[in-house]
């Protein structure tokens, strides 16, 4: 009698809650898109990683192919060690290069993979040889100013 309608309401409540969590997991979060897929681990050393963070995307030709798993510091080489998990569906040649890019002017930083020409493919535990660190805005501006100041005396020199 009364208990049945109460049960119905509680049922609706629980189902709505599960739906909300599923919505959060599938539509809002990245569950299903990547975390569940199997991955292989590749390492790369950068002289400067800028603002790269763990879980940043790894893109090749703009497509997300993996994520940064871990960022460490190699105290022997004074370089940053970035551990990347790549989706096993995507294979890359051994001489592929990694560079750190920025999406948009102030956007998030990500790792861009550029495929090389070798026939052997990257496998678990490999290290990328060719890397390009992050472009630091301050260095860029400094360089620009330096170039300008070198140009300036030449221009000012009277003929």
């Amino acid at each position: 009698m009364q208990r049945a309608t109460l049960d119905l309401w509680v049922g609706i409540f629980v189902v709505a809650g599960i739906a909300a969590i599923l919505f959060l997991a599938l539509r809002v979060g990245n569950m299903g898109s990547f975390d569940s897929a199997s991955t292989y681990t590749v390492k790369a050393e950068f002289d400067n990683i800028g603002g790269l963070k763990a879980r940043a995307p790894i893109k090749s030709a703009g497509v997300v192919v993996g994520r940064v798993a871990e960022i460490g510091f190699d105290s022997a080489m004074y370089e940053a060690t970035v551990t990347m998990k790549l989706d096993t569906r995507y294979k890359f040649p051994k001489d592929s290069s990694a560079s750190i890019m920025t999406s948009g002017l102030l956007g998030e930083q990500y790792v861009a993979l550029e495929a090389g020409g070798e026939e052997k493919m990257l496998s678990e535990g490999d290290t990328l040889k060719i890397t390009q660190g992050a472009v630091v805005l301050e260095n860029l501006i400094g360089q620009f100013l330096y170039n300008k100041s070198e140009e300036a005396p030449k221009a000012a020199e009277p003929k």
Binding site: L24, A25, V28, G29, N30, M31, D35, R55, V64, E108
Partner: peptide
Amino acid sequence: FWSQMQAAVDFREDILNGV
């Protein structure tokens, strides 16, 4: 709106921790 959201929100780190 949706794709950036999905790229930034992690199921375990964000959603499960929220729960």
